[in-house]
């Protein structure tokens, strides 16, 4: 099993907007059905709201929005993947979880240089598995609120306030 730690990676694979993504299983605590999300007024737009996870209030983000895609609506297949990153427990809304996959580190390639910008920072790499492209996401990056973003957020709020 030592080889697993060095050369292998276990991923939770899920769908989001017709694409297949994967995150390191080490960060994933559980996967639950999406229900009763309470919206938070004034929070960043990619924050879908908060849920009650066995007595804890956990923020949930709309992963699609976080990655700069159009938001997904909540359907019967929508799942919330509860992850723990850097001491924070949070949820990500995804379109459905398909499997847990084992793959070697060699099969992962760095994201192409053309893909740059804000959401590219969340990409860890791309893996080709049986003719499927799986986009590896860096959960730490997804939930790290960069100072720059926070500032942009503040600026945006100030503008809106001035306008209203």
């Amino acid at each position: 099993m030592a080889g697993e730690q060095q050369g292998e990676l276990q991923l939770v694979v899920f769908r989001l907007k017709e694409q297949t993504y994967g995150v390191d299983i080490g960060h994933v605590l559980e996967i639950i059905r999406a229900s009763d999300i309470t919206a938070i007024p004034g929070a960043p737009d990619f924050v879908e709201g908060v849920i009650n996870l066995r007595g804890r209030v956990i923020p949930v983000i709309d992963l699609a929005r976080r990655l700069g895609l159009t938001p997904i609506g909540v359907t019967g297949n929508t799942r919330i993947m509860i992850v723990e990153v850097g001491g924070t427990t949070a949820g990500m809304m995804v379109d459905g979880v398909s499997e847990v996959l084992r793959l070697s580190r060699e099969s992962i390639q760095l994201p192409p240089a053309v893909v740059a910008g804000f959401s590219a920072a969340c990409l860890q790499g791309i893996a080709l598995v049986e003719q499927r492209l799986i986009i590896l996401l860096d959960t730490t990056r997804i939930f790290r609120r960069e100072e720059k973003e926070a500032l942009q957020e503040l600026a945006k709020q100030a503008q809106e306030r001035a306008a209203s």
Partner: peptide
């Protein structure tokens, strides 16, 4: 609300 959301006005 947790550290991730921080202070929400």
């Amino acid at each position: 609300l947790g550290g991730y959301l921080g202070q929400v006005p």
